[in-house]
């Protein structure tokens, strides 16, 4: 039974990906992409990676899907249906088959049993300050990755804002819709609770700053789309602080051991758990704000484009 589920899922994923790229309507492609993301979250749950399944469902599918859908409302001026169709190339399918065979052969040639680094992580987990191995790897053993990742997020947010400096004013139409406003009001406490729980649970189970930040950002996106909240502006001091709290605190914690004879990112064992928790809290705020900054606000009314004339 399990094998059947795995087989179906493994077949459905490439099939859906093919459909995403094959379909002629762009909005249909985005919807199929969201379905693809949810199915891959299921696949990650099947591969015993609940952390990744959570992040995929919240960030990889939820926020990316919303972002892409949002973009479609902007780019529809260009005729999509003609250009979205792939140019027909017979060799493309041939190349795809050859590549699949080559890489598939490489995967089949791998040894079936490999403990990886799991044993090493388990042996040192006591020293890391947290009980969940993935959190231990993310914030202690491979802290560099997370530190640089935050930098990447920050640079992406700055870049996205730099190419579209004007933040769009929210239209007042959505605010009059009673249903979305009520929905948002009901959602907010649950969102905050879930985000707080996820940060806390990251210490000993699947969860952490990324999942919590994504949940908060999701709530923020709903708030923007229902015009409860304006798009955060880069010029606002509070926004800047929210963006910088995580990286600055993390850099501070990373650099501090250098002054006491330690090495970069070497947390003292006694305080490791507390430090990781504080860093995760700060990272949650920054991640939520960065993900929110990716949203340019609601689309201006069509007449607004006439300003170019």
């Amino acid at each position: 039974m399990d094998g059947l589920l795995d087989g179906c899922l493994a077949l459905c994923l490439p099939l859906l990906a093919y459909l995403v790229l094959r379909t002629e309507s762009l909005s249909q492609a985005v919807v199929l992409f969201v379905a693809f993301g949810l199915l891959s979250a299921l696949g990650w749950a099947r591969l015993e990676a609940p952390d990744i399944a959570l992040v995929e469902a919240a960030v990889g599918t939820g926020l990316t899907g919303a972002l892409l859908m949002h973009t479609l409302s902007w780019t529809e001026e260009t005729p999509p249906d003609v250009r979205a169709r792939a140019r027909r190339r017979p060799w493309a399918l041939l190349a795809m088959a050859a590549l699949t065979l080559l890489l598939g052969w490489a995967v089949l040639a791998l040894p079936a049993d490999s403990p990886g680094l799991g044993l090493e992580v388990d042996a040192r987990r006591e020293d890391s300050g947290v009980k969940h191995p993935v959190t231990a790897v993310l914030l202690n053993f491979r802290g560099y990755d997370t530190l640089l990742e935050i930098a990447v997020l920050l640079v992406a947010a700055l870049g996205a804002r730099a190419v579209n400096p004007r933040s769009e004013r929210a239209s007042s139409e959505a605010a009059k819709d009673p249903l979305t406003g009520e929905l948002f009001r009901m959602m907010t406490p649950a969102l905050l609770l879930v985000a707080g729980y996820l940060v806390w649970v990251g210490d000993h189970g699947p969860g952490g700053a990324f999942q919590a930040g994504a949940i908060l950002a999701g709530g923020g996106v709903v708030a923007i789309l229902t015009s409860r909240m304006g798009t955060p502006r880069m010029s606002s001091l509070r926004v800047r602080w929210a963006l910088l709290t995580g990286p600055l605190l993390f850099i501070g914690v990373a650099v501090a051991p250098l002054f006491s004879g330690g090495r970069l990112l070497e947390f003292p064992e006694k305080y490791a758990g507390t430090l990781i928790f504080i860093v995760e809290m700060a990272l949650t705020v920054t991640i939520a704000m960065v993900l929110l900054m990716f949203f340019p606000g609601t689309r201006p009314p069509r007449t607004g484009r006439g300003s170019a004339r």
Binding site: G60, T64, G116, G118, R142, V152, L153, G159, A160
Partner: peptide, 23 residues
């Protein structure tokens, strides 16, 4: 349980791919 190191790498990868998508 599975090897946690690739899991952490993939978590980082998903977030980076989201930021590249946003850009």
């Amino acid at each position: 349980p599975p090897d946690p190191v690739p899991h952490a790498l993939v978590l980082t990868g998903i977030v980076v791919s989201v930021s590249s998508t946003a850009l």
